[in-house]
Design a protein around this nucleic acid. Structure first.
Length: 627
RNA sequence: GCCGGAGUAGCUCAGCUGGUAGAGCAAACGCCUUGUAAGCGUUAGGCCGAGGGUUCGAGUCCCUCCUCCGGCUCCA
């Protein structure tokens, strides 16, 4: 048989030859360094037989940054971890251990809980394995054999995996550890040049909170120590950008025991909030969204009608009164529909777009709160568009366009996910075909790539989620665009059609920042606190060299304020060096030192980062306008 | 909510096997009047997360709760 190499040359091999055989045919060095094959673009274990005509590529220990090469390295590292843990902790049950984005984990069921300190011991054991060297062998056996084998080893999780596995069962063995595993794996442990355990956490078996909780050990591995160092450095950088840290350092906000999950916004943080709010209003006005204001608390009856009472009550803050129970709103939609229903509507009114950035309260589980990115007081840049079936695609398109305008403004990259019909749903298949089709068409018309989350839509309609990643590489949902026919029906929203029939409008729920809280958190990390000039809480600080320069400095700051900038004068009670340093640490974009040498004709301007300019006042104003 | 870890001054942290609570930065005050990333001195600052227990004595040991951190689940 023949296989095709990356340079399109053909290699003649005996039938049933593996990628490793192919490597040997090319050269012994390659065979030694090979870690993984890519066959027709898909990663495949070196030991598996190739088929005639396969396009193969051999990844080696030199492909240190290739995601597939790292995956196989880390997958094998996870098996080494499991081997070490089984040796050190007799009676432990092993669950699963896959590679992940920046490393790997392995889930165990320990007879006794272990602690962070134990990681050192485990890591040492893995190092011992690495020093000894391990090689992996692969075997394929029947399901029954696999079942018997793991039953004999008293590995109930493996037995369960065998029972639910599809296709043939493959096993990988290294040292005295055999794992049920699809692979692929390394030939041996030599390529693992850096190994580190990074953390310990609880995780439910199969991600299901009703199943037993296992202990997950996280780790990472690289093809070189330098790569591990670079990775650790990146983690350090992420910590430096952490919005929870920067929020306190830059005096933007703080969180307090007295109201968990609800930030206190300090004056400087509120400046950023206000700028985003102004942006929100400006763009909404341009795009035909009408600002409204609806109540914060509603009678239980409304939530019963909307379905929240049934589906969402555990997340709602209730206010029991003697004669009736109120709830603080966790979402704006019911209020907006109630507003819509306050009068009769004609098809001529549609699309009708209501916008409101009201504070919402959601009683999130205590363990899920996280800085600004997961809070209990949520302020969405919310909008609800009532429209006809024919208007859906254009309206979704407009929302996507609006979202991209905002994200581009900040240089943020977004990822789009289309969630389609779930198992439990309202509406006919024809209906879902149509609405999913409309969302797809809008995404494609706007030229946006998207992934599809099959079955992840809400029970009342499909949705498009917009994700961004924070400095630690965690993906956060920011915006969401959801199509809804069920709630308008439940609340009895109607309009009169051109044919004089009563129809139910479709409702598009839409938030583009997502929430101000989370969005500001992400922006803080994205910019590492160096907010763009228009968002900077203090834009210009004038530093008088001595007390005699105070009046001139005040005059200058006043002129800048008149021109619309947030300018202030610093106290002259420290050395200039110290005050420059403070301004840098506060990340103020423009600092002006004002002393004997300065005048309206000649100002000593320092930009954030250290660049210095000498500008007259007129040129300074021109310059500020470009920042 | 679940698993693991942690809560000491505004911030970052020290405080061993129980014996009257400490540093740096920040702050206030004073001196210096400063020229592009830290001038000098003085002072003040703590119910050691909350409640209970063990003990002659608890920041330190035990229990419960709260909050925070890393995850799981959930989610904007």
């Amino acid at each position: 048989m023949k296989v095709v190499l990356p340079d399109n040359s053909e290699l003649e091999l005996p039938d049933g030859a593996s990628a490793l055989d192919a490597a040997r045919a090319i050269g012994p060095k390659l065979a030694e360094q090979a870690v993984l094959a890519r066959v027709d673009g898909r990663p495949q274990d070196l030991r598996l037989p190739l088929a005639d005509g396969d396009h193969i590529q051999l990844l080696t220990t030199r492909d240190t940054q290739d995601p597939d090469a790292l995956y196989v390295l880390r997958h094998s590292s996870a098996h080494l971890l499991a081997e070490a843990v089984r040796r050190l902790y007799p009676g432990v049950k092993v669950a699963i251990g896959p590679p992940i984005e920046n490393g790997f984990y392995y889930d165990f069921d320990f007879p006794e809980p272990i602690r962070e300190e134990d990681l050192e011991r485990i890591e040492a054991e893995v190092r011992r394995e690495l020093a000894e060297g391990r090689s992996w062998t692969r075997e394929e056996i029947s399901r029954e054999q696999a079942r018997d084998r793991f039953l004999a080893e008293e590995e109930p999780y493996k037995v369960e995996l065998v029972d639910t596995a599809e296709g043939d069962i493959s096993l990988y063995t290294q040292g005295d550890f055999t794992d049920l595993c699809r692979g692929p794996h390394l030939q041996d442990s030599k390529p693992i040049k850096a190994f580190k355990l990074t953390g310990l956490a609880g995780a439910y078996w199969r991600g299901d909170s009703s199943k037993p909780q296992l202990t997950r050990i996280y780790g990472t591995a690289f093809y070189s120590q330098a790569d591990l160092d670079a990775h650790l450095h990146q983690l350090e950088e992420a910590r430096r950008r952490d919005h929870r840290r920067l929020g306190v350092e830059l005096d933007l906000f703080h969180l307090d025991d007295i109201s968990p999950g609800s930030p206190f916004w300090h004056p400087k943080g509120q400046v950023i909030w206000n700028e985003l709010e102004a942006l929100r209003k400006r763009e909404n006005a341009k795009r035909g969204w009408l600002e409204v204001q609806t109540p914060l608390i509603y009678d239980q009856r409304l939530w019963e009608l909307s379905g929240h009472w049934e589906k969402y009550r555990e997340h709602m803050f209730l206010i029991p009164e003697p004669d009736r129970t109120f709830s603080i709103k966790p979402m704006n939609c019911p209020g907006h529909m109630w507003l819509y229903n306050s009068r009769l509507h004609s098809y001529r009114d549609l699309p009708l777009r209501y916008a409101e950035a009201a504070p919402l309260h959601r009683n999130e589980l205590a363990g899920t709160l996280h800085g600004l990115t997961r809070v209990r007081k949520v302020t969405q840049d919310d909008g609800h568009c009532f429209c006809t079936r024919d208007q859906i695609e254009d309206e979704i398109f407009a929302c996507l366009d609006h979202a991209m305008f905002l994200y581009d403004l900040f240089g943020l990259g977004a990822r789009f996910e289309l969630s389609t019909r779930p198992e439990n749903r309202l509406g006919t298949d024809e209906e879902w075909d149509f609405t999913e089709g409309a969302l797809k068409a809008a995404l494609e018309r706007r030229g946006l790539a998207y992934e599809i989350n099959e079955g992840d839509g809400a029970f009342y309609g499909p949705k498009i989620d917009l994700h961004m990643e924070d400095a630690l590489g965690r993906a956060w949902q920011v915006g969401t665009i959801q199509l809804d026919y069920g709630q308008p029906q439940r609340l009895g929203c109607t309009y009169m059609s051109a044919e004089n029939t009563e129809e139910t409008p479709y409702l598009i729920h839409r938030a583009l920042f997502g929430s101000f809280e989370r969005f500001i958190g992400i922006l803080t990390e994205h910019f590492a606190g160096d907010f763009p000039f228009w968002l900077a809480p203090v834009q210009v600080r004038v530093l008088p060299v001595g007390e005699s320069h105070g009046d001139a400095s005040l005059t200058l700051a006043g002129r800048l304020q008149d021109a619309g900038y947030r300018a202030e004068v610093g106290e002259p009670n420290e050395t200039i060096g110290k005050r420059i340093r403070d301004a840098e640490l506060e990340k103020i974009p423009v600092t002006i030192v004002y002393g004997d040498k300065e005048s309206d004709e000649s100002l000593a301007v320092r930009l954030r980062g250290g660049e210095q300019l000498t500008l007259g006042l007129v040129d300074l104003l021109t310059k500020l306008a470009t920042l």
